[in-house]
Simulated assay, not measured.
Amino acid sequence: MSGVTDPGLRERKKARTRAELQRHALRLFRDRGWAATTVDDIAAAADVSRSTFFRYFPTKEDVVLLDDVDPVFEAAFRAIPAGRPLLDALRTCLRDGFASLDEEKRALEEVRMDLARSIPQIAAALRERDTWGVENTARMVAEAVGRPPDDPDVVLFAGVVTGARLAAHTLVHRDAGRGYIETLDAVLGRLGAGIPLADAPIVTSS
């Protein structure tokens, strides 16, 4: 029937526009820096109006908060065959999901992660939205192991993984030569042998 717009097509076009705006924004943040890049700069680079930018992102911070990579990891996680150990499955989906991105997307995701570490208002928004938090991880893990998301073991495992992500961010922040994904993979690998220092004796006292 003529004159009827396919809602699915409309949503895909919106998603493409959001992704393009973020791509141009992250390029500018990388090349000019966060503070020196304005919304007008991003709109001009994407060849859209300022009002179009605000139609998709309420603030400059929101263009960084858009996360279309974690869904790739979740899809890779769900594709792993039954029987794989949970921690190994998480490391596999992390590596495979990141490897599935093109070279520029991988590089810009590292830029996005760096901004999430270094810009306080972005870090605060991520904590508030639980983007990297226990609840989101618990939901994915619970589905994989067939337990409810409030199962104490599911919540504990999700908390450990969330802590690993925060540890990876801290290590990368201290060493600009590190890549986030490789660092997170290494941190998760260390957890395979148990929680580091859990049985270490205290050698000093206050």
Rank of each mutant, 00 (worst) to 15 (best):
S2C: 07
G8K: 06
R10C: 12
K14P: 02
T17A: 14
Q22Y: 05
R23I: 01
R23H: 10
H24N: 11
L26K: 00
D31N: 06
R32G: 11
W34S: 06
A44C: 15
V48Y: 12
S51T: 13
T52C: 12
T52W: 10
F53Y: 15
R55C: 13
P58Y: 03
P58W: 06
P58G: 03
T59S: 15
K60C: 15
D70S: 04
P71F: 15
A76Y: 03
F77T: 06
A82F: 07
T92G: 03
L94C: 05
D102V: 00
R106G: 00
L108N: 00
E110D: 03
V111S: 00
A116S: 01
R117Y: 02
S118M: 05
A123E: 14
E128G: 05
R139E: 09
M140T: 09
G146C: 11
G146A: 07
P148A: 11
P148L: 07
P148K: 02
D153E: 14
F157D: 01
T162F: 13
G163T: 14
A164L: 13
L166A: 13
H169R: 15
L171W: 11
R174M: 12
D175Y: 14
Y180K: 08
D185L: 09
A200S: 12
P201S: 05
P201V: 09
